[in-house]
Design a protein around this nucleic acid. Structure first.
Length: 452
DNA sequence: TCGTGTTTAGGCAGAC
DNA sequence: GTCTGCCTAAACACGA
């Protein structure tokens, strides 16, 4: 990032303005009973909010940019239609920084939704363009601009659990990305391949007393750490891949994001290392619910379906309602779905998550203790190595829990636990996230160093 | 049989 | 040009 001082000043001003907007909105929403519990917290943190540094204050941006393939979901008046479609939760749902408690439904961002945001969202309101042309959940023609690893992570986050079965990953993806419902099922092979090959994912063997096939998967804590540190190189995914079979139906929408907004986003992401998949142009097609013109990527080398090897298309894409899912997995999947409250989301964004003080998290004490404050931290090995703990489930679990705050918004819970518990999932504020003020992390010391 | 998991191979594209 | 990450495809083994 090469942000100038002028930019920084502007950014700070924007943030202060944002806080003011947030306060205003909060006051306007006092009649919302769901708000009441948070108001005190929020108001008690007004000062800190206003005096926040830019990194903290930009949390809303992080919430908005890195988590949701679709940006904010529709406001309540549009929820019904989405919920009527058996809306699954989105990755946003599980993210502590976005309120943590509300499973979100990927949906089309709308002007109404944006207008409810506490302050102008760079790149959205700023240019006054809120296209709603792409809804990955319902649009079968556009391939999500996320890597499989990202999709897996999203599914894991949305699951609100520390581990997730392969079938649930499939289901989450097909539920949230219509493209995959109609795509050649070979993408599932890619998912499996990714899980096996990608160091980010750790297999959790299924217990013998647990029915079902295969094991569970979770994110390697190291992955979360690298996420935070921004160690991963930026790589751009093709923002869209048009389903050839549906390409003819597409109608690209022109869209522009003003340069300042893009810069603002970039600054934030570079500050937080949250830019994993961020691409301003990509953002146009995801966060803003549209796709960039002239960025249709023809990277596919796949021959036409007719030329595919025999048997490669034998099976159709699986659906979330697949009877192949065992009861347990259906239960598990249940937590991936559900309605959410936009008001609550926004309110939460205005209250708990923006605060730096006080444990807002309903995470069980023992789980909280397993964060950076905990002692059961087993530092990851050298980059690239999954380490021996990969083969030690117990150790893995401890390691995972120890850094759970970094990577999983879900509450560690047993599979037997019924769905819906995630509604109490914690929120993790930036203080937790970056361990601000934590004595374990000294000045100039990175979280990794502290952990090591 | 089918789902799952692993491994290998090759190609593409962005970053360096 | 090389490195790296990602995607795709395929083959194989294992277990429910």
């Amino acid at each position: 990032m090469s942000a100038s001082c002028e930019d920084s000043v502007g950014l700070e001003a924007e943030l202060l303005n944002a806080a003011a907007h947030a306060e205003e909105l909060d006051n306007n929403n006092n009649n919302n009973s769901n708000n009441n519990n948070n108001n005190n917290i929020f108001q008690s943190n007004q000062d800190s909010l206003c005096l926040d540094d830019s990194l903290t204050s930009l949390q809303w941006l992080q919430e908005f940019s890195i988590l949701g393939p679709h940006g904010p979901s529709p406001p309540p008046h549009q929820q019904s239609s989405l919920l009527g479609q058996e809306a699954p939760s989105s990755p946003l749902a599980a993210d502590p920084a976005c309120g943590g408690c509300m499973p979100l439904t990927p949906g089309k961002p709308t002007s109404a939704a944006y207008s409810r945001m506490p302050f102008p969202l760079p790149g959205i309101v700023a240019h006054g363009h809120c296209p709603d042309d792409v809804d990955y959940r319902t649009n079968p023609a556009v391939k999500p601009p996320y890597s499989y690893a990202t999709l897996i992570c999203m599914a894991m986050q949305a699951s609100q659990r520390s581990k997730i079965s392969l079938s649930c990953i499939y289901s989450w993806i097909t539920d949230n990305y219509c493209y995959f419902r109609h795509a050649d099922p070979t993408w599932q092979n890619s998912i499996r391949h990714n899980l096996s090959l990608n160091k980010c994912f750790i297999k959790v063997p299924r217990r013998k007393d647990e029915p079902g096939k295969g094991g569970f998967w979770r994110i390697d804590p190291q992955y979360a750490e690298r996420l935070l540190s921004g160690a991963y190189k930026k790589r751009r995914m093709p923002p869209v891949q048009i389903n050839p079979a549906l390409q003819g139906r597409l109608r690209p929408a022109p869209l522009s994001v003003d340069a300042r907004s893009q810069r603002l986003l970039q600054e934030f992401e570079e500050a937080t290392g949250a830019e994993q998949r961020w691409d301003p142009q990509l953002a146009e097609g995801t966060m803003l619910g549209s796709w960039p013109v002239s960025r249709v990527v023809g990277r596919k080398r796949k021959p036409p379906p007719g030329c595919r090897a025999p048997g490669s298309q034998a099976k159709g894409p699986r659906r979330s309602s697949s009877p192949l899912l065992c009861v347990e997995e259906q239960k598990e999947l249940g937590s991936l779905k559900g309605s959410f409250d936009w008001d609550a989301l926004l309110d939460s964004a205005l209250s708990g998550d923006l605060s730096l003080d006080g444990p807002l998290s309903p995470i069980p004490k023992e789980d909280q203790d397993l964060t950076v404050h905990g002692t059961q931290i087993f530092p990851a090995e050298a980059p690239g190595g999954r380490g021996a703990d990969r083969h030690n489930p117990d150790l893995e679990e401890e390691t995972f829990l120890a850094t759970a705050f970094l990577q999983c918004p879900w509450v560690e819970e047993e599979v037997e636990q019924g769905p819906g518990d995630y509604l109490c999932t914690s929120t993790v504020n930036l203080e937790q996230l970056f361990d601000l003020g934590d004595p374990l992390v000294g000045p100039g010391e990175t979280l990794s160093e502290a952990l090591l």
